[in-house]
Every structure is written in structure tokens, then in C-alpha cells.
Amino acid sequence: VFGLDAWFHNFTQFTPQALNPEVLAEVPAPYKEIAIYGTFKSVEAASIMGGLIVHPIYRWYLTKRLRPEETTPNSHKIIRSTCRKMQGRLLLASFVVGPSVALLWSTTLSQSELANHCYSLRRRREELTIDRCTVAGGLIGWYWKRFQGAVDGINVGITYALFNNKVLAKYTSPMMKDKIADGDQYANVEEAMKHKSRLDKFLAKKDGQNV
């Protein structure tokens, strides 16, 4: 769908039978893929900045501005809510900024270079783990408290992914194992296309002999 079938199969690993080294190297929609990648990175950056930097600083600033005569039992609750709304706005903005910057950057590459870059992104297992956990955590957080909850969910997802990449992966089996082993992957898109072309010719020749 929309030229993203191979990307989707690799990202989700829901249908490993649909994946093989040739399919993994098919990049029919590189601009869409780089926009998705830019969205992921922007969302992750916005969540970390919003949750770990902007929120505490803005909360400290608003708390400092509170005057004793204006303070009520709900003042700190209002400040916390205001800061969480700020986090949500940052996250929302990242859905526009991320793909825009990625697409702008992609104009510096030829289509072949961009396709190979997208292919290399598909092969970055640790980064894929972070992106997958971002999606899972973000969806759970969204269900909990919409954009404000999504920020917390994404931060939890990123934290778990980093812990998994640096610690758990050494001692446990991965929950979502990529089907295509490193040794079976092509070096680049062109190599995969050449192999597929030779294979198609061989199969066509064999079919012709069987007629």
C-alpha cells in the first residue's frame, strides 16, 4: 500500500513470511520512507525535550512567578496541567517539523542515494527497536491521556528500548526477532536488483522450457 509494503513488513515483523532479502531491499517510495523516519526522530526528540527539559524548566518558572497572595490549593495542579499541555503541543509540532526537515534534506540526494539510505535505515536493528517501542508506548499513552499521555508513553518506550539494546539483548532472546539475518542481506539496493533480475530471467527461461 502506497509503496510501503516492504517497509511495513520489516518494521512490524507481523508477517515474516512476506519478507526475504530481495523484498527487504525494495524501496519503491523512498521519499515517503524518509518522511516517516523524520517523523519518528522528531517525535522522539520532542518527547524527550518536552518531558525531561521543557516541562521541569517551565514548571520551575511558573512556580517562581506564583505570589503567596494568589496561591490556591489548586495552583500547583494548574501549573502541572499547563506544563503537560506544553509537552503535548511540542509533540504535535513534531509531526509537522520532522517530515518537513527530512524531505528537505532528501533533496540533497539523488533518488538512488536516497533509496540506499532508506535501505540502510531498515537494517539498523537497535534504532528499529527504539522506533517500535516509541510506537507502542505512544499508542498506550495516547489511549491513557491523549497527547500528554503519549509523551510519557514515548519516553517510557525509549527508555525501555535503550535498556534492551544495551543490557537485555545480551542476556535474553529478542521479543521481536528480525527474520532476515545480517549475513543474508544485500550490501545495497543495486545488488539486490541485479540478483532479482538474474533470478527472474532464470525462472522465465525455466518456464519456457517447461511449456
Score class of each variant (00 low, 15 high):
residue 140 I to L: 14
residue 70 E to F: 15
residue 63 T to P: 00
residue 137 G to N: 04
residue 167 V to E: 04
residue 6 A to I: 01
residue 193 M to Q: 12
residue 175 M to E: 12
residue 122 R to N: 05
residue 13 Q to L: 13
residue 77 K to V: 13
residue 116 N to L: 04
residue 83 C to G: 10
residue 63 T to V: 07
residue 89 R to H: 15
residue 59 R to E: 14
residue 17 Q to H: 11
residue 63 T to Q: 11
residue 3 G to K: 04
residue 187 A to F: 00
residue 205 K to T: 10
residue 52 L to W: 09
residue 180 I to S: 02
residue 40 F to D: 02
residue 150 A to H: 02
residue 62 L to Y: 03
residue 170 K to Y: 12
residue 57 I to K: 10
residue 133 C to P: 08
residue 34 I to Q: 06
residue 172 T to G: 06
residue 88 G to V: 10
residue 84 R to W: 09
residue 158 I to V: 14
residue 124 R to E: 11
residue 38 G to A: 10
residue 5 D to M: 07
residue 91 L to H: 03
residue 210 N to E: 13
residue 137 G to L: 07
residue 182 D to V: 02
residue 65 R to K: 15
residue 59 R to V: 10
residue 94 S to R: 06
residue 164 N to D: 10
residue 26 E to M: 08
residue 163 F to M: 06
residue 6 A to T: 05
residue 86 M to L: 11
residue 195 H to C: 08
residue 61 Y to W: 13
residue 52 L to T: 14
residue 88 G to Y: 13
residue 55 H to C: 05
residue 10 N to L: 02
residue 1 V to S: 06
residue 139 L to A: 06
residue 182 D to G: 01
residue 156 V to L: 12
residue 200 D to V: 01
residue 8 F to S: 05
residue 14 F to Y: 14
residue 184 D to V: 02
residue 95 F to R: 11
residue 172 T to I: 15
residue 103 L to I: 11
residue 118 C to F: 10
residue 191 E to G: 02
residue 123 R to N: 11
residue 18 A to H: 10
residue 26 E to Y: 05
residue 109 L to G: 02
residue 211 V to D: 15
residue 137 G to V: 05
residue 142 W to C: 04
residue 137 G to A: 12
residue 96 V to F: 11
residue 78 I to N: 13
residue 36 I to M: 13
residue 88 G to W: 08
residue 115 A to V: 00
residue 209 Q to M: 12
residue 41 K to W: 04
residue 190 E to F: 01
residue 202 F to S: 14
residue 128 L to C: 08
residue 23 V to S: 03
residue 46 A to S: 13
residue 175 M to T: 06
residue 30 P to Q: 01
residue 121 L to C: 07
residue 152 D to V: 10
residue 23 V to A: 09
residue 130 I to V: 12
residue 207 D to N: 14
residue 132 R to D: 03
residue 184 D to K: 00
residue 145 K to V: 04
residue 79 I to A: 04
residue 172 T to Q: 08
residue 108 T to A: 09
